[in-house]
């Protein structure tokens, strides 16, 4: 049976501006979130003072051999400058709750998207081929 094509409403200029600004705001707010979280986790002043009191590093104490030390120096880094880089290590301890929540978010996202897409796709196919 032939179906009447869906006739979408026309969108006014204001509506278009609002839509464009909304998606921009969503990009800026949600993708800036990791920066805000990082700022909250920034080390305290007392920790910075404590590290300033630590003994001055040497290439040996930093675990650098003679070739490594020579390359650091050619790159303009003395042991103190290199220590900041060398001691900035990743922590790969996995928080199972956070991992579980992230995995759940990923699964829910794809599940929601595929379910809704399937429903919308049937409308597209019906209108395209049943006319």
């Amino acid at each position: 049976m032939a179906k009447t094509p869906y006739a979408p409403p026309e969108q006014g200029a204001l509506g278009m501006v609002i839509d464009a600004l909304l998606i921009l705001a969503l990009v800026f707010v949600s993708l800036s979130a990791p920066l805000w979280v990082a700022q909250l986790r920034a080390p305290s002043t007392s920790a910075a003072v404590a590290s300033a009191d630590a003994p001055k590093p040497t290439w040996e104490s930093l675990g650098q051999n003679a070739v490594m030390a020579a390359q650091w120096e050619k790159l303009g880094k003395d042991p103190s400058a290199a220590a900041v880089i060398i001691n900035n290590r990743f922590d790969y301890a996995v928080n199972p709750v956070k991992l579980g929540l992230t995995a759940a978010l990923l699964v829910i996202y794809y599940f929601f998207m595929l379910r809704i897409s399937e429903r919308e796709y049937r409308e597209v196919i019906a209108e395209k081929f049943d006319r």
């Binding site: 998606i23 949600s30 990791p34 990082a38 990743f90 956070k98 992230t102 998207m113």
Partner: peptide, 18 residues
């Protein structure tokens, strides 16, 4: 591993946009 906050924030963005 190391960038979990970035992963979560981008998933939240796409979820809200969807």
């Amino acid at each position: 591993l190391g960038y979990a906050d970035y992963l979560i924030s981008i998933l939240v963005f796409f979820m809200l946009a969807s």
